[in-house]
């Protein structure tokens, strides 16, 4: 801890690491920084395109369904559950890191299992959300004809309502901006890919913990490194949640 460093300590005189972390951890930080710029670029592009449109779908109307609840209007309820699952899995991961510092093999195993479970739960939620958006169709007025479409990267039904036009008891809308689907599926898909990778990494270190590799090595730093990646995935979700669901 930094409290142990004497004041005026010369970090850059050679013979020691100025960052005072192992090579692997430093490289993980550098990788995460580059990944931050990738996600940042994607989200800023989304913001720029969104500001270029006069109309943009309201997240409260887009994300208002919950599994097994039928057509009940529950805006943002499901994504809140997803956010909670991801925060919870982040807590279990940091508890695994904590047990790793104490070299408690059983503790690391227990918390890693919970983290893996949280990761799978989140991925399952995302699969449901995507399936719902793609397959749940609504009447849309396209070139003077009413068509039933879902939300994909090619089209969506989140455009402004056509006043007074109903179809099978549903309000007819105009097609929403195509870039909404592009950015939503692109960015949440890229994030979901990161979660999937994180779950795979967690499974690998779980198996290595079971096999006793870290006990033989004398430290659980690998848990820390994978933990950094996992928290980063949670961190990205904070901003995906902000940009797609809240704002």
């Amino acid at each position: 801890m930094s409290t142990q460093i004497p004041a005026g300590y010369k970090w850059w005189t050679g013979g020691k690491s100025p960052y005072n972390v192992s090579y692997g951890k430093l490289m993980m930080w550098i990788f995460l920084m580059s990944d931050t710029f990738t996600f940042g670029g994607l989200i800023i592009a989304y913001g720029s395109i969104r500001l270029g449109h006069n109309y943009w779908p309201d997240a409260n109307y887009v994300f208002d369904k919950f599994p097994f609840m039928g057509d009940a209007n529950l805006p943002l309820a499901f994504v809140s559950l997803m956010t909670f699952i991801l925060i919870m899995s982040s807590v279990t991961m940091v508890l695994a890191v904590h047990e790793g510092h104490k070299r408690n093999k059983k503790g690391v195993e227990k918390w890693l299992l919970w983290t893996i479970l949280g990761g799978f739960l989140f991925l399952g939620c995302q699969a449901w959300e995507w399936t719902h958006l793609i397959t749940h169709t609504h009447p849309v007025l396209i070139d003077g004809q009413i068509r039933e479409i879902g939300a994909t990267i090619r089209h969506n039904h989140f455009g402004p309502a056509v006043p007074g036009l109903m179809h099978d008891g549903h309000q007819v809308h105009l097609p929403g901006p195509v870039s909404f689907g592009n950015f939503f599926f692109g960015i949440t898909g890229f994030h979901g890919f990161h979660v999937f990778t994180g779950v795979i990494l967690n499974i690998i270190i779980y198996i290595r913990t079971l096999a006793g590799s870290f006990d033989r090595l004398g430290h659980y730093e690998m848990v820390e490194k994978v933990g950094l990646y996992w928290h980063f995935v949670d961190l990205v979700w904070v901003f995906v949640f902000l940009c797609f669901y809240l704002i």
Partner: peptide, 25 residues
């Protein structure tokens, strides 16, 4: 946005232990 940024501070400084690293890092 401010609330999200403060969430990011908690995650990075406590969960990722960046608050415990050296000033250089």
């Amino acid at each position: 946005i401010i609330l999200s940024l403060s969430k990011a501070v908690y995650i990075v400084s406590i969960f990722m232990h960046l608050g415990d690293e050296t000033r250089n890092l």
